[in-house]
């Protein structure tokens, strides 16, 4: 197991390094960054000044190492647009995004695991049909519309929950439901399919033949095997929720990192974009690593892989 974790750590580090190169390279993919910063009407002298000021005149590997060295220490430079340290902007907002992401994935798992398991025990039962209905609706409703519906109902008509902001825990309830519901269908379907598959397997028959109580067969023997692909998917979705919660954050005016990413893209704020891409990717890598370790703990066959 220790060897497995070490292998995965080395691989994660290599992926992280690759990602850092790509996110650094983004600055150059959009053309000469100095020209982009100086604006369309700038003269050659002005561009040259900017080039020197921001260090674009140095060799690219030197720039990369310089950038990476600072990034590791949490320094992502100065935002070209806001003229303030990128790390200050990001870290003040990251808390909101991470809270929302964790709440949403927990909400999604709390809904999808029990429903997936129950509908797998009795396929085509009423409960199964209800679950499928919920899943289809979740896939079909756009998040922004669902968010607006909730605001209309709970904030405007009933006045129970705040419609926007991130000041109190109540502010997170509706965004959690919207973002979590979006992730629920896939997780539920995967749980259901996995459980149906596992429940018809030979070792479940063996477990029954031992005279184990149905609950033990279900939770000890079946769920552990069925949940393995769900863990991997949940990790990917978690990463997605951190980076891709822009719509939800916008609807509820939660000023999180997703919202910042959207702003920096629309304002061509390269250093902020770079930093966000790197941070979101690191989250992905960490979650994938954690999911791999969790799965290896669940299934010993994965440990030797």
């Amino acid at each position: 197991m220790v060897r497995f974790i070490l292998t995965k750590l080395v691989m994660a580090a290599m992926v992280a390094l690759t990602v850092s190169i790509i996110s650094f390279g983004l600055v150059y993919m959009a053309g000469d960054p100095a020209i982009a910063l100086a604006g369309e009407t700038a003269t050659d002298e002005e561009i040259a000044v900017i080039r020197e000021q921001y260090g674009f005149d140095r060799p690219i590997p030197v720039q990369y190492l310089d950038w990476l060295g600072s990034a590791v220490r949490g320094d992502f430079g100065i935002s070209y647009y806001y003229n303030m340290p990128v790390s200050d902007m990001i870290f003040s907002r990251l808390g909101t995004t991470v809270t929302l992401g964790l709440c949403a994935i927990s909400f999604a798992l709390l809904i999808s695991l029990p429903m997936g398991v129950l509908s797998a025990i009795k396929p085509n039962s009423l409960l199964d049909r209800v679950a499928v209905f919920i899943a289809v609706v979740g896939e079909a409703i756009p998040s922004f519309w669902f968010g607006l519906l909730l605001i209309v109902l709970f904030s405007i008509n009933l006045g129970w929950l705040p419609a926007s902001g991130s000041d109190s825990w109540q502010s997170f309830i509706m965004p959690t439901i919207v973002l979590g519901y979006y992730a629920t269908p896939a997780l539920m379907r995967l749980t259901r399919a996995g459980m149906i598959d596992v429940l018809s397997s030979d070792y479940i028959r063996t477990a029954k033949a031992k005279g184990l109580r149905p609950r033990k067969v279900l939770f000890k023997h079946a769920l552990r095997n069925a949940v393995i692909p769900v863990v991997s998917l949940a990790a990917v979705q978690m990463g997605f929720m951190l980076g891709g919660s822009i719509v939800t954050e916008t609807v509820f005016a939660l000023h999180g990192a997703g919202f910042l990413a959207w702003q920096s893209i629309s304002r061509n704020d390269l250093s902020t974009m770079q930093a966000l891409i790197l941070i979101f990717s690191m989250f992905y890598i960490v979650f994938t690593f954690l999911a791999d370790v969790l799965n290896a703990w669940l299934d010993p066959r994965l440990r030797s892989g």
């Binding site: 028959r205 029954k208 033949a209 005279g211």
Partner: peptide, 27 residues
């Protein structure tokens, strides 16, 4: 009932299956 039957299973009556490769829980 299934509950009563399961008290016999693995206890007073037991079964061995055809496929040893998949008859045991891999976890």
């Amino acid at each position: 009932s299934d509950k009563q039957h399961s008290k016999l299973r693995g206890n007073r009556m037991a079964m061995i299956f055809q496929e040893p490769m998949s008859a045991l829980n891999p976890c």
